[in-house]
Design a protein around this nucleic acid. Sequence first.
DNA 1: CGCTAAATATGATACCCATCATGTAAATGT
DNA 2: ACATTTACATGATGGGTATCATATTTAGCG
Lengths: 187, 187
Amino acid sequence: MKVSREQMAENRRRILDAASRLFRDKGFDAVSVAEVMKAAGLTHGGFYGHFSSKDDLIAQTLAHVLAAEPSGGGDLRAYVDAYLSPRHRDNAAGGCPTAGLVADIRHQTPAARSAMTEGLRSQIDRIGKALPELDPADRRRAAIGCWAAMVGAVILARAINDPALSDEVLEQTRAWIDTGISQVSAD
Amino acid sequence: MKVSREQMAENRRRILDAASRLFRDKGFDAVSVAEVMKAAGLTHGGFYGHFSSKDDLIAQTLAHVLAAEPSGGGDLRAYVDAYLSPRHRDNAAGGCPTAGLVADIRHQTPAARSAMTEGLRSQIDRIGKALPELDPADRRRAAIGCWAAMVGAVILARAINDPALSDEVLEQTRAWIDTGISQVSAD
DNA sequence: CGCTAAATATGATACCCATCATGTAAATGT
DNA sequence: ACATTTACATGATGGGTATCATATTTAGCG
């Protein structure tokens, strides 16, 4: 059963969106091709009409999801607060793809690794631009340190089994970043 | 072929050590039971004499490897330097089990998650004790923020495909932690 | 010194999954 | 309208892996 050109384009988008959510939620390995297709409302047969392999799906999903820039209305403080919230910790499927997928990237193909690398490069730039600092060197250092702490904290918080400690990791990291940022910005 | 009591204990240790290295290197899913046994110098048959399942192996491996405290001769600065070095980034199999395995923990059994949680709890305490700060609240905040940044930076650096950016993430995070720590410790 | 139980080896078993093969129906262009 | 192409469905196929079953050898004990 052939479908219209637009229908096919939408199907492709649905597959990428479904894959994006499933991968973030369960990791690349734990999600099967058939599972992705079912979540997109299709069967497994049509998969290889859209992608050449599961690795290809992974690489394209990363490019797709990392291209969708986070809102970041310039308000870094608000962004950090939302990022380090229990809500974001508990919503891996809909949350930051970096936090959900970076660690897995190490074992993926060069195409996937490159997609993640470029995503991280622009994310660091974006944070740097949102920082209040003046000195470019300070700006760069704060952007990288801040992003490493954010991603690390969410990953740690998601691993921890004790709600109190998990909450504390988020909250203390938020406070630590706060002092780290406001320290240099002399307003 | 039965083996001596001590031989069996050593075999068990060998299995846990092999599993620890393989898991850190390739992730829980990508390592098969047979692969672990072969790396320990045995065949896959004896596995279920030592462990009740692969999940059991994962949980016991975590408890085993997290119990081995990092040297931490009290010199936090040196520890952070080594942690955020290219050498550590490139040596996942022999490196920090937290950096190599936390992200995967989210999908593991409660036993595995609890082992990791306790490992993180003591690691945070250990860093806190090594900090120069006086105020207990500052100490706690710095320990958690610092640890989140360290783990996050190594995970990011291992994912990134571009050596220059990867090195920079390590180096800038080191500098960011440095200013964050020395800021409060007024000596 | 021989018996028994235990530790490991060898060899199934059953399941899951990526990928391929083929069928089918509808969209597209002439 | 018709032919053709194409997107997807259904249904293999082959490989990998966790786990189990049975055999073998020897440690540990009397």
